[in-house]
Design a protein around this nucleic acid. Structure first.
Lengths: 374, 374
DNA sequence: ATCGATAACGAAACCGGTTTCGGCAATTAT
DNA sequence: ATAATTGCCGAAACCGGTTTCGTTATCGAT
């Protein structure tokens, strides 16, 4: 009858004299108070068949002895472990994960919840990871970062009736709780800004269109063009750009055109940073011969040269809000009350300015640069 | 007898016909197999008083039905929740948290463990957060990132006899399991590289000396100096530099000296990135008039101009190793078998080169630049 | 004075596992 | 052939909570 795998290290003398044991349990509390543990539990959980007097007495004593119930012991009956789930996908760069996690975990901690994190490479893996966390009840609900226009995670969680909250909306967000940054407005502002700086040919380098934020940003970029009477030119609208390397390639492609844009709008900073390499290669001055504006506010942007003009989002706050929303959702709050947005705020840098050369001149410059290089 | 706080949404018809219920429990399994749940449990947990035949039969059926025990239900008896704890401090920049988490969580997932993450601002908060996670048994052990020379977390966890594993060694690491990157060797290589490029006055901008990695890097920087017959000059050794902003200030101070260094070694990329702003301000060409080398391999470094010469560490791998080590530690493996190191690998960039000006000339240049600015 | 309702608590079942202990049958030792 | 051991499994206690149900005392109404 020897136990196989693990070994039990401790289990010292701890329970010899009951009461001085390590953690204080609901039984200790009940003994001290001369009540049964059932009564104590009910008192702590606001049952209506406990007198106000006892409830108070119990709560006071619990606070005094610093009693905190074990979440997993509760879970065995309630099914809830007081833990938020977060599964992120590592297929692309995640510049502000740290801030985001800080936000989530701080709010969770504050409310005595915890945060279970996992990561997966593919979308299928994300789903199976979520499934595992549900099956093993490691989380009561999920924060879904980077929502897609049609999001498999949402479908999955809806079917399983597991609470979740979106970071970013989705196509059909009835019955969804969400927090979002209004990136759309920012994109329109960006077009406006470039227009008044004198740009008339403004390209757009977008992320993968399956992401909802990308979809929205494109939509509002087009709205912006229309608003200022600029005609839509599909040859200078690129999408699917997720990394800095991608951004580099996209930028190069735009500048190789016979009539290159004088300004480029990027859906993300990560993509925009690719432009710096290209500019360096081609001997182009960012902010003068070519203007760029992007979106996110990653720290690298501030240290680029010239610094990146970008719309910054407060990722930490996003994490805080999402945690609070999810906890409320799990506690049964209605989704209609669980929807929030915040704006993105413009941080002007040196990467945009009035065009010093026209599209034609730019094209000539680039042609010469190419020849010199040969 | 109305339940107070929460509301119980579901609890549908699910248990009407036992067996088709949602999750399959150990009882289902036992029924199907015509065994008691005790026997099933023992079979799955490698107890020696179960015949090989039954053990196999049980395991096969368990796999077939995709039975997975609830960690929290096990925990109520065993005290172990199969979860790794990670509490990080947000007082300074954390450029590679995402990679690190990916590593940790992937290994954890692979072994059917999960990862509980929390963050705290101050050191005291870190300790109290760890304490809370222990008290509530949200984690069975902890990964301690960024160890200090004398680390309060280690003292705390030692006293509580909670398993932990260090990312980076500490002064007294007897009875500690750890994973570390040999940053020391890299620092010596860096001095060597700069020496052979022709530098004779090499400054060192270090992180806060309370961190063990900083302590080690300083030590080996000094060893490097000695090895190449360079004398130690305490006026060009700065420490306590944790952010890019700090790095900027430190760099400025070094260059303002009457005999400025021609090369600066930074303990971290985050600090080194500060040098780019200073160089821009002072009209200095990095890689020519001033050389810099640093350590970490953050993505920003590759996109700086010129790109940063740095010793890169594989943060994701670090996470993987640490997770594996901690799980082994929790399972009772001896600490002596749980120690690993990996080297940091040099990624040459354009930020270092042979000095084009001497220390004296550099000083003159900077003096002129200052006057021009006035 | 009797009865029913209600307020407030105790007793015990329960959740899904783990672990102890006891007992039966088969094997081995005497 | 009998006793002692061993192998293997079932029965039941247990973990720390929650929840159901039953019980008692009190109170107001009749």
């Amino acid at each position: 009858m020897i136990r196989g795998g693990m070994m039990q290290l401790e289990k010292l003398i701890d329970d010899v004299d009951a009461g001085s044991g390590n953690r204080i349990t609901i039984n200790h509390l009940a003994n001290v108070l001369n009540l049964t543990k059932g009564t104590v539990s009910k008192a702590l959980n606001e049952y209506s068949d406990i007198s106000e007097a006892t409830r108070l007495r119990v709560k006071r004593k619990a606070a005094e002895l610093d009693y905190r119930p074990l979440a997993f012991a509760q879970a065995i009956k309630t099914g809830k472990v007081r833990s938020l789930g977060l599964v992120f996908q590592t297929d692309s760069e995640r510049p502000f994960l740290a801030d985001f996690l800080t936000g989530v975990s701080q709010t969770a901690t504050k409310k005595n919840w915890s945060l279970t994190v996992a990561s997966a490479v593919t979308e299928d893996e994300v789903l199976s990871t979520i499934k595992r966390l549900i099956d093993e009840r490691k989380a009561d609900g999920f924060i879904l970062p980077r929502t897609k226009v049609k999001d498999a995670r949402i479908k999955f969680l809806r079917a399983k009736k597991i609470p979740f909250v979106l970071f970013g909306r989705t196509q059909d967000h009835t019955d969804c709780a969400w927090y979002d940054i209004c990136g759309e407005i920012a994109m329109c502002q960006a077009v406006e800004r470039l227009f008044f700086l004198g740009h008339r040919k403004i390209a757009f380098v977008n992320s993968d269109l399956e992401y909802n934020f990308a979809y929205l940003r494109l939509k509002v970029y087009l709205t912006g063009l229309e608003k200022f009477g600029l005609k839509q030119d599909n040859s200078i609208i690129l999408s699917g750009v997720m990394t800095t390397k991608d951004g580099e390639i996209a930028t190069r492609r735009l500048l190789e055109k016979s009539a290159p844009p004088t300004a480029i709008l990027y859906a993300t900073d990560v993509a925009a940073l690719g432009a710096y390499k290209v500019a360096l290669d081609l001997g182009l001055q960012i902010g003068k011969e070519i203007s760029i504006i992007s979106y996110d506010g990653v720290p690298e942007g501030a240290y680029a040269n010239p610094s990146l003009t970008t719309f910054k989002i407060d990722t930490k706050k996003a994490g805080e809000q999402l945690a609070a929303l999810l906890i409320a959702r799990i506690n049964g709050e209605l989704v209609d009350l669980l929807r929030e947005t915040d704006p993105a705020i413009l941080y002007p840098g040196g990467s945009d300015g009035s065009p010093t050369v026209s599209s034609k001149e730019l094209s000539c410059m680039l042609e010469k640069a190419k020849i010199v290089k040969l």
